[in-house]
Simulated assay, not measured.
Amino acid sequence: MDKNKKENTLHIIKIGGNVIDNSENLHNFLKDFTELDGYKILVHGGGKVATQLSETLGIEAKMVDGRRITDIETLRIVTMVYGGLINKNIVAQLQRLGNNAIGLTGADGNFIRTKKRPIKTIDYGFVGDIEENSINPENIKKLMDAGFTPVFCALTHDGEGQLLNTNADTIASALAVSLASLYETTLIYCFEKKGVLKDINDEESLIKEIAPISYEELKQQQIIHSGMLPKLDNAFTAINCGVKSVIIGHAADLGKLKQNSSFGTRLSKNA
């Protein structure tokens, strides 16, 4: 890779529970992550650990439409799990691989400041919503210029001393949009499928590329629907805001990027 291009390339990668909850999967992913050229940022959620700890402590995990209700007890648990156990385990493993990682919440360095979600029909509790100018890109750039690899967990703050639970997919997208003016940015969502599939039960039905026009056609044909829609809507919003491309694929395939081989589903303006 051209030296100047390498120095201006940024990969922002979000991993979910399917990676976090399996130590072998996590090790293999972090090895591939470490070997990527250019700048990189890792964003992670909490996997099953927060729910398991809640059960152990006798605290019921409350969910509405797949979203966690974060009351004060739950906030304490996700802070311990996301910002502590999982984040520091990932950082320690990256250090072992020679990657000088630094574990962060949005409160550290005032990197991500959010607002508590207002109460409408549902009170989500201590959940933070990202708004325009929530991200501090210059401070993140300083950290990366100093040689550190940021590892963000799904916690932010409101600037008034309150930590807030914030969706990791949303954090990754907002980071990509905010840093796109400084770097040639690729946003990658790693999950348990090879990518966007025509048939959810057939891993070989991978859609390799999606552009805005073909996305509208796929929605009209109901090939893409339900849970995948918000992820793709957010992806195209990021692209429209300057992110070079978005890749959705299996964490085990990340190493193909190092080999200049495509993986998963690539979304871009000109896919």
Score class of each variant (00 low, 15 high):
146 A>K: 09
42 L>D: 05
150 P>W: 01
269 K>I: 14
174 A>Q: 05
183 Y>T: 14
31 K>W: 10
135 I>Q: 01
181 S>D: 14
110 N>Y: 07
10 L>I: 02
89 N>K: 15
82 Y>T: 05
170 T>Y: 12
27 H>V: 14
37 D>C: 04
195 G>M: 04
198 K>M: 15
11 H>L: 02
234 N>V: 07
80 M>S: 10
11 H>N: 05
235 A>M: 08
244 K>D: 08
3 K>S: 14
58 G>E: 12
36 L>A: 05
147 G>V: 12
200 I>D: 06
122 I>P: 00
138 E>N: 10
15 I>L: 07
246 V>P: 00
124 Y>F: 13
47 G>Q: 06
92 A>N: 14
270 N>S: 11
115 K>C: 04
184 E>R: 15
125 G>V: 00
158 D>H: 11
86 I>S: 01
257 L>W: 03
225 H>D: 09
259 Q>N: 15
112 I>Y: 02
172 A>D: 15
110 N>T: 10
117 R>L: 06
80 M>K: 06
149 T>W: 09
20 I>Q: 08
252 A>K: 12
132 E>L: 06
74 T>Y: 01
30 L>V: 08
218 L>A: 10
181 S>K: 15
49 V>E: 07
227 G>I: 03
259 Q>S: 15
87 N>G: 11
234 N>E: 14
201 N>Y: 15
186 T>F: 01
50 A>S: 13
237 T>M: 13
88 K>Q: 15
226 S>P: 01
50 A>R: 01
6 K>Y: 03
217 E>G: 01
170 T>P: 08
271 A>C: 05
190 C>G: 04
192 E>K: 15
46 G>F: 10
219 K>Y: 12
45 G>V: 01
82 Y>S: 04
111 F>T: 05
271 A>N: 04
149 T>V: 15
268 S>N: 09
177 V>G: 04
83 G>H: 06
42 L>G: 06
16 G>F: 06
203 E>K: 13
165 N>H: 14
252 A>F: 07
103 G>P: 05
93 Q>I: 04
143 L>R: 02
8 N>Y: 06
148 F>S: 01
227 G>R: 09
244 K>H: 13
254 L>I: 12
192 E>H: 15
44 H>Y: 09
76 R>A: 13
198 K>G: 15
251 A>Y: 00
250 H>G: 03
192 E>D: 15
244 K>V: 13
148 F>C: 03
204 E>P: 03
167 N>H: 12
121 T>N: 12
173 S>Q: 14
146 A>I: 05
227 G>D: 02
94 L>V: 13
172 A>L: 15
46 G>V: 14
131 E>K: 01
52 Q>Y: 05
204 E>M: 10
